[in-house]
């Protein structure tokens, strides 16, 4: 009890940390899903070299993957605060620094980062689909949309699972960064706890353990998904 473990229990911080963990998972999941949509769209553009768009996608992925996440988060938060406040005051809302707004911007920021990594995974997975499959589908007279839905998408998703596992791990760890702009997620809860009890060691240690638990549990899930898909493809 030396480092304030008792204080953590007594002060009800466990609840705050668990609430933070729930928000971390929610931000991570929403951002991952948003990133997946972006990633599939951009991956298809990059794979098919859709002429003017592929340059935009190239610029997007290389900027987001080459610039620190923190800088991107600052850009989106600071520029949107100004914009959103102006819109909100026009509609007559005064205080807008509520958590709903922070959550939305967090999902957009982390989703944009996650989307850039997903794009590369999707493009790689699309690249490994044999050309013959698509040609065969075309020879059978399937329409473009049906080729995508029945031939490309199922194979692509299966090949992309290990890569998506990596993207998910990166995404969930990146959610810690939105704590610097005030969203009450796991890292922020630990930060507040550390500040008000003056026991930073135990709070950050607990946060580290919770993050580790999230990543390890999801690792198990992804491993299981991978095995499931592999078995099905053997049949």
């Amino acid at each position: 009890m030396e480092f304030g473990l008792w204080q953590v229990w007594e002060g009800g911080w466990i609840g705050a940390i668990l609430r933070g963990a729930a928000i971390t998972i929610a931000v991570g999941t929403a951002a991952m899903l948003a990133g997946l949509v972006v990633g599939i769209a951009c991956g298809l553009i990059k794979w098919g070299r859709v002429f003017p768009l592929n340059y935009i996608v190239d610029a997007y992925t290389s900027v987001v993957r080459g610039v620190p996440e923190l800088l991107i988060i600052y850009l989106l938060f600071f520029s949107s605060v100004e914009f959103v406040t102006r819109v909100a005051t026009a509609f007559g809302y005064a205080g807008l620094a509520d958590s709903g707004y922070a959550f939305t911007i967090a999902v957009i920021a982390i989703g944009a980062i996650s989307g850039a990594y997903s794009t590369e995974v999707v493009r790689g997975a699309l690249g490994s689909i044999p050309k013959g499959h698509i040609e065969a589908a075309r020879a059978l007279g399937l329409s473009g949309w049906r080729i995508f839905r029945r031939i490309i998408l199922p194979q692509m998703l299966r090949i992309a699972v290990p890569g998506m596992n990596n993207v998910w791990q990166v995404t969930i760890k990146d959610t810690a960064l939105v704590s610097v702009v005030g969203l009450q997620e796991l890292m922020r809860a630990a930060f507040i706890g550390a500040g008000s009890t003056r026991n930073p060691f135990i709070f950050y240690l607990i946060a580290a353990v919770v993050y580790l638990m999230i990543t390890l549990v999801s690792q198990v899930g992804f491993d299981r998904a991978e095995r499931l898909l592999k078995v099905r493809s053997r049949k």
């Binding site: 930060f191 550390a194 930073p200 950050y204 580290a208 993050y211 390890l216």
Partner: peptide
């Protein structure tokens, strides 16, 4: 490698900078 790859760098940084000084 599991511990360092499974936790965000920010948490590690804060744990070292703010936390270790308590020990």
């Amino acid at each position: 490698s599991t511990v360092f790859r499974g936790t965000p760098l920010l948490v590690q940084l804060f744990l070292f900078y703010y936390g270790l000084g308590q020990l």
